[in-house]
Design a protein around this nucleic acid. Structure first.
Lengths: 220, 220
DNA sequence: GTCTATAGACGGATAGAC
DNA sequence: GTCTATCCGTCTATAGAC
């Protein structure tokens, strides 16, 4: 039997803690998951966790930072692009890829918004800064002085794609959560294509330097 | 001075508990809000809360049920309508109105998904049944055997509108939360119109009995 | 690097007086 | 209907042995 399988691996304890904690935090919620539970699942004791992390929140920070870094990268990149309809598509496309790739972290953040919103100390916590990042992405598409309607549309595009991805991608499963045998989960690539198309439709309603074929009538 | 103002009202203690609890749960999170804190803000003791509610979760149940009832009403109504594009618009319109009207409860649910997802006993808890309701609304629009693409689009429409509303409608404020002085919050009616239009664009990409003018080309 | 043991605090919930 | 007092559980975090 592979010595790296079963429960015998070691040396990567820190990563294993992150992985298990992320899984449990996402599924049960941050506050309802105790360090004891994490330790038990790993076959260690609570005290061992404190060798690798200085606090419970520190574990969250550790596995969130990579995601936030990547999101910031995307923001920086987006800001540097020329403001065209084609760029908007690319931004959304990369955003979707990021959400899909880091879906576990994203799911954690989605389900623990309250915890992220009111962290013990706002000082060194970048977690609660979801809003400015979202605004930055939106502004990269609409420009700085866009009317409300454009900003809402761009925002809606991001929400539509991320929420849809989360809704249709299956839970990591293994335990509880989705006991409901609902419709089969679509393939990740199919889903990506579909949501890109949706975002595209939403963004077409925005006044950008290079809009697509004008073929939509206003609602009212 | 109005005797019903300031802090002197009484008799409606139950409602005041619900209101304060909802506010704190939505802002700080369910687990990070103690009964002591709720009681303090009301000028009573913890024990008093237990006269009106049998447990902490019972408070959540009490202010959630009205919202869920209304959502179920919408589902029932939607199912009974003929499946046309016009109906789809109406469903979304009513959904938006519901979210806006009950935005406090909606915000609570959004920020405490983890808590709602894994309630102590699944038996009498209707809270975690967000998914089936969403699917029901989607099916009312797409029909029972719709392809994945249609289902995703309809789902995205609902997410796009509710998330946008939550993002742009200001927090009840008064306390902390949105310390960031970002763009001015749009008027509620304007916002409603904008998101209806967005949903409309998304839903136009679905094969329904009576589609609008076909003027959109596929992405690929 | 992991353990045992425990400190120290706070939470939800109940009993019973008024 | 509200209060005082208290029970009991659990949690994070730390000290110190191995």
């Amino acid at each position: 039997m592979d010595p790296a399988a079963q429960g015998g691996r070691r040396g990567d304890t820190r990563q294993r803690i992150q992985q298990v904690a992320l899984e449990l935090f996402a599924e049960q919620g941050y506050e309802r998951t105790s360090l004891r539970e994490i330790a038990e699942r790993l076959g260690v004791t609570k005290a061992a966790l404190y060798y690798h992390f200085k606090s419970k929140e520190d574990i969250v920070r550790s596995f969130s930072e990579d995601y936030l870094d990547e999101l910031d990268e995307l923001v920086t990149w987006a800001k540097a692009q020329p403001r065209t309809a084609a760029t908007a598509q690319k931004i959304v496309d990369r955003y979707i890829a990021l959400v899909m790739e880091r879906r576990e972290v994203f799911r954690f953040m989605e389900r623990n918004q309250a915890m992220l919103h009111r962290s013990d100390d706002h000082k060194h916590h970048r977690l609660e800064q979801f809003r400015p990042r979202m605004n930055a992405l939106v502004e990269a598409i609409t420009g700085p002085d866009a009317p409300t309607r454009s900003r809402v549309r761009a925002t809606a595009a991001f929400f539509a794609v991320s929420a849809s991805c989360m809704f249709f991608m299956p839970d990591p499963s293994g335990s509880a959560g989705s006991a409901i045998p609902f419709q089969p989960a679509p393939d990740a690539e199919d889903l990506h294509k579909i949501v890109v198309e949706i975002a595209d439709d939403i963004l077409h309603g925005i006044d950008t330097p290079g809009p697509g074929p004008a073929s939509r009538g206003p609602a009212t």
